[in-house]
Amino acid sequence: MIRLKSADIEEIKQIAQKTYPHECCGVMVGSIENGVKTVTELIPAENQRTDSPANRYLITPDLLNELEKKLKGTDRAIVGFFHSHPDVPAQPSTYDQDHAWPWYSYVIVSVNRGQAGEIHNWKLRDDRSAFDAEKMELL
């Protein structure tokens, strides 16, 4: 399960709308207690897939490495990521699944004609066979 503030959801939607018709992406940082992730910070990232920004996103290892170093020794960690699907439902694509990591939460927001719509949270199965919806609780 992941817990987010309603303000976080609003922020993700805002970013997704601003980035439309391209995909937005970003990192969710938070604390973990008994397997429950609580988001404390959203870090928008620049989409590095400049060759195909309307249907692809990429967050580079450099950014994640630097962030991991900053978080080391604190009680917070990278707990997941968010990205948008311009004019496509908020379901993970095959491409999403092929590139996903286990354990992390993947929040996807659908943006239809510039308007942010449904938002869902997903987690990859440990055997990579599918994504499952992961419970999202609003604080």
Binding site: E23, R49, N55, L64, H85, S93, D96
Partner: peptide, 12 residues
């Protein structure tokens, strides 16, 4: 040795 993720995906 460090294993560092890239995070990638996309709508279609």
């Amino acid at each position: 040795i460090s294993i560092v993720p890239s995070i990638a995906g996309g709508a279609l």
